[in-house]
Simulated scan of single mutants.
Amino acid sequence: MTTLVPVAVSPLRQRLIDEMDIRRFGHGTQRNYLRDVGRFATFLGRSPDTATAEDVRRFQIEQGEMDVPAPTMNAIVSALRFFFTQTLDRPDLARKLVRMRHERKLPVVLSRDEVARLLDATTCLKHQAALSVAYGAGLRASEVASLKVRDIDSERMLLRVERGKGGRYRNAMLPTGLLALLREWWRVGRRERVLHVDGWLFPGQHYLKPLSTRQLHRIVVEASVAAGIGKRVGPHTLRHCFATHLLEDGIDVRIIQTLLGHAKLDTTAYYTQVATRVLRNVTSPFERLATTAAEGKAPKG
């Protein structure tokens, strides 16, 4: 009989994990930070707590020469800044890290008709309910996967998001139609013995484990293909649609910021660039030139 030997965790790695746990970092963030700090350690060839300012400078030069994409490099910078500042108490090294500027691409946004077709193209009620939450409440894929049955507050018509980005808690909206769909899923899930009062709202292959973000991505892609949607979509596309469609309906951008859980208004305001209905309703000053000229030529009484 083979005995599994637990993998030893170095004190430095454990300290990094403890610092992330204290701040309630999500599983995905912790995994990424550990990977990126490990990437720096591999470059050094020794423990990263022995790093110098020159090591940090050489690391960034090498990453640039390897054509590491700017978003990836900035993610590494965030991980190392946390590591140097919180784990090592070396803010002097954190200050040596430079974020790369890059052009942010406009998000892919589906029309309301396309969203409806995508949701209808799902293969089962659980998948339809999960994607409907992503669109109807504007949740991230990780937030959808982390929902539990008790997070549904039907009295106040809210969804409690306990572990949002950065470990922040917030309330998301719960539309009446979405609540009805979730109640239908509850009845079916209970009958199939996969839903429990204290369990995950969207369990994975085993009811004790939640649906993974990778599974959510696969569900969206398969539904978009079945619906005949040619755009490249993922779970986050539905969140983009939520924000853009609210903006087109005239909802104040600060309210949308709160619903999305954005820390900065600039992040939410970016959706004004893809809200086509808002742009169509704006009258260009050019259109008013003719009116102004006509008023100037009108005979004075």
Rank of each mutant, 00 (worst) to 15 (best):
R117N: 11
R117W: 00
L119M: 07
L119S: 09
D120P: 00
T122D: 04
T122Y: 01
L125R: 08
K126R: 15
K126P: 03
A130T: 05
L131E: 10
S132P: 05
V133Y: 02
A134Y: 03
G136A: 11
G138M: 10
A141G: 11
S142C: 12
E143H: 04
E143R: 03
E143L: 06
K148T: 12
V149R: 14
E155H: 11
L158R: 15
K165D: 07
K165T: 07
G166V: 08
Y169F: 13
N171T: 00
A172C: 10
A172D: 06
M173K: 04
G177N: 14
G177S: 12
A180F: 00
L181E: 09
L181C: 07
R183Y: 01
R183T: 03
R187W: 00
R190D: 05
R191L: 13
L195I: 14
L195K: 06
V197T: 12
W200F: 11
W200M: 08
Q205H: 12
Q205C: 01
Q205E: 15
H206V: 15
H206E: 14
Y207H: 14
Y207A: 15
L208Q: 14
K209A: 15
S212F: 01
T213L: 03
Q215Y: 00
L216E: 08
L216S: 07
H217E: 13
V221F: 05
E222W: 00
A227N: 04
G228W: 01
G228H: 03
G230C: 03
G230N: 03
K231Q: 12
R232D: 13
R232S: 14
G234E: 01
P235N: 05
H236G: 09
L238K: 01
H240I: 07
H240Q: 09
C241I: 01
C241S: 13
A243T: 06
H245S: 10
H245A: 12
H245Y: 07
L246Y: 04
L246K: 07
L246V: 08
D249Q: 14
G250H: 05
G250S: 10
G250N: 08
